[in-house]
Design a protein around this nucleic acid. Structure first.
Lengths: 137, 137
DNA sequence: GGGTAATTGCAAATGGTTTGCAATTAGATG
DNA sequence: CATCTAATTGCAAACCATTTGCAATTACCC
């Protein structure tokens, strides 16, 4: 997976710097979605001389190349998740904002309906469930 | 509808000020979701002596009382929509950010599935479709 | 190993949202 | 209808996630 992203970036002419390697490593070794600040902290644990700006700039590149997804949970800060080949959705805890990955998607037939009714070209969708996780409820 | 919201607020001990009336009027006379800034501008057209802070504070009250919904489209600014009794979703244009209301929801049976699989208490969900509207495509 | 364009770190700017506070106002009470 | 009081407002400033400008550094093609 790492490999795939690295190749994608290299192919588009981006340099594989240490900072980018570390950011990718952090993004891949998590099971939730991380905010820029959280990525920053985790990368700092590996190498303290990184700056937040670099995190944001790397995020930007990854998003523009469809390698990362930006997700909003309603607290004025985005969270990011490496884009997997497995299309999926999340359950978001309203209290701690933890994001639990869910498998599957019931949208496919719905999209078709919409395409016919509204004159709108659908390129994707985003589905989040809100509620309380085991610890918070 | 106006009436309903006013009653709800009054019932909870909030005062029905001119500012709040204007904000509600603006929110009710639109067919898209408005950002705080957009609400501000529209309210200003009615009475120029309102300030953005009041918009934000009213939004906060409405959200806390389940009368307004906050929606993210990925451009660092929230949009707001009066909460109707009709549960629905949106198609969001990736270019102009216009939000087209859609009827229906294919989620109900999916929620049940999730409740059983993951240990998570679902209180709601949010579904947005992304793509390009007629004018932008 | 040298050259060059991409990348980084730093500091400062940006922009949406929030907060503190003194002045104003809605609406209950008499 | 006037008074009183707590809620609300406007203003200015703070806050904080994200973005930008720029000079110094680095990846990587030759």
């Amino acid at each position: 997976m790492q490999k795939f992203i690295k190749n994608q970036l290299k192919q588009k002419g981006f340099k594989m710097t240490n900072q980018r390697k570390m950011i990718l490593q952090v993004l891949e070794n998590t099971d939730t979605c991380l905010s820029a600040e959280e990525i920053f902290m985790l990368v700092k644990d590996i190498n303290p001389s990184v700056c937040l700006t670099t995190i944001y700039r790397t995020i930007e590149i990854l998003i523009k190349n469809n390698l990362l997804t930006k997700i909003d949970v309603g607290d004025n800060r985005y969270r990011y998740e490496i884009r997997t080949n497995k299309h999926h959705h999340h359950a978001v805890c309203l209290k701690c904002k933890k994001m639990i990955c869910l498998e599957g998607c019931p949208m496919d037939y719905f999209e078709k309906q919409i395409k016919d009714k509204v004159n709108f070209t659908i390129t994707g969708h985003r589905l989040e469930f809100y509620g309380y996780c085991l610890e918070c409820k």
